[in-house]
Design a protein around this nucleic acid. Structure first.
Lengths: 301, 301
DNA sequence: GTTCCGCATGAATCGATAG
DNA sequence: ACTATCGATTCATGCGGAA
């Protein structure tokens, strides 16, 4: 196993099974094969996994290219390790989309969900990422693909979720409704008595903020970096705010364009990133360091 | 088999296997069990199937209640017959969504896709219906569900698709895509002028038309009427315009609120509808007759 | 004739309670 | 332990009546 650590620690000491030193694993981007690295990470230490693995691709020389027919068997050992390192109340968000193969949507995502359930994962939810500016193109038998899946898996039914952190403004319809509450609303408010912390007031104030749905409307980021971002910063940002609190540990086993680790740092979460390609790795290190530097500067001001 | 035919023909004659009389099957809503009726319909006569079958539901006394664990085995004989009656270049659009069972998304939709592929169906595409007004509610472990699948299946790689019929304006207007070309707008234009119908629309939105994506943004129709629709008229309308031309035959094996047949009539397509519940059947007959009546009146003006 | 406003109504889900 | 029922929660839309 060939490890390379981004910051002060340059080698990984043999982890102590009974009491792993978690500091060793925090805020690192690690160069190496995803499965190898994962196997060396202690169990039950990660609060959230957000990742966008390399797409299945029949072309051989593509980055991370895995043939669609081999995708499930390639991913299952990885998801097994992810399940182990994830805390019981943690969450795994998998951003993925099936490719078109032979004029059909391939079924590897469907099969992957079924197989991961056999591993013990709970398939809690499927968020939909609507890509407002999707890739252009024209085909005779299909339209442009403007959405991707964000599959939510959990170890158990009870997991951490901080819904208030991602509330959104109410629609315009609420302006008229806020003026006069209808009789039914009043009755409903009256019916619930006994909440100790002035929940009624919270409901009043909360009128201008509502909980979002399981559909995310985000534009893809068209940056002019050498590598294209797998997803916009708002995507990991939304899930990090929703499923972790400050200081929690976020894991991205396929760093790629580094979005998840950068966002985690900006949101004062810890991170572990894994990247197999050294040039992407170098870019990721530089970006994270830039964020850390600016964050430090901000703190000094 | 107990048949009841909506219009002038009150009994179905034994179909001639070698040369079925298609007129017998056009513009009918048939009361009876979906599978029974389908088995009596000649092969290779339908251009498009658009339907929204009853969702899997553990409640027994509900309309169409099928337990999630039994859903696939219940649907497969039906999809087998649908495959037979569909033309080779026809399309099957299946509107469906998995329910939450035991805090998890059930997998019957995934399994259904895999099993239908074994039947010979091609899983060409998965359109996304974003429900702008989804069901309210708050839960500690999930947000409101604001999207449903519209699965596209085909008999073969080559199928009829009229992409120009569903082009949408560019720019900010495009957010409300289909609203801009709603049926009411068209009907209003129709009543004003009559003949130069297409030209007027072209003048109004004529420039900067682009092809849509595979994401549809539509609100559900929840009227104050006694009978509300499972999906908005724009949904079948969009697929009917995309996959059929005038005079083509559209099949909805689960009529329910009758949306598909009404829209097919309004768009000058033929239809076959199947409905098992007699009260829904009666409503469907009334609604289709109302459309036919108003359409006739328009033509006379 | 417009615009505004009140109101009913959704392919829902969870947790507690009861059998 | 396992299943069935019930109450509580919540927000966007279109209709119809009123200003």
């Amino acid at each position: 196993m060939n490890l390379s650590i981004s910051t002060e620690i340059s080698t990984i000491s043999d982890q102590n099974e009974s009491a792993p030193n978690l500091e060793e694993w925090r805020n690192k981007i690690i160069l190496g094969d995803c499965l190898d690295i994962l196997q060396s990470i202690p169990s039950n230490i990660v609060d959230l996994i957000v990742t966008s693995p390399p797409y299945a691709d029949s072309r051989k020389n593509t980055y991370g290219g895995v043939h669609p027919d081999k995708y499930v068997e390639w991913f299952l050992p990885i998801s097994q390790e992810l399940k182990r390192v994830l805390k019981d109340d943690g969450t795994f968000i998998l951003n993925i989309k099936e490719r078109v193969v032979n004029s059909e949507r391939h079924t590897y995502v469907l099969e992957l969900i079924l197989e991961m359930k056999k591993q013990g994962w709970l398939w809690t939810e499927e968020f939909m990422w609507h890509k407002r500016n999707c890739f252009p193109g024209k085909w005779s038998n299909r339209f442009r693909d403007a959405w991707e899946r964000c599959l939510q898996f959990n170890n158990q039914k009870k997991f951490n979720m901080y819904q208030e952190e991602v509330m959104v403004p109410t629609g315009d319809w609420a302006k008229s409704r806020l003026k006069n509450l209808s009789e039914t609303d009043k009755r409903r408010d009256n019916s619930k008595v006994g909440s100790p912390f002035g929940k009624k007031v919270a409901n009043w104030v909360g009128r201008d903020l509502v909980y979002p749905t399981n559909v995310l409307h985000l534009a893809t980021e068209c940056n002019n970096k050498s590598h294209s971002a797998a997803f916009p910063k708002e995507l990991p940002s939304w899930f990090i705010k929703l499923f972790t609190k400050e200081g929690d540990l976020v894991l991205d086993p396929f760093v790629g364009s580094d979005t998840t680790c950068v966002v985690a740092t900006e949101l004062n979460r810890e991170y572990i990133g894994i990247e197999i390609k050294s040039d992407y790795y170098d870019l990721a290190i530089a970006e994270v360091n830039a964020v850390n530097k600016s964050t430090t500067q901000l703190k000094l001001l």
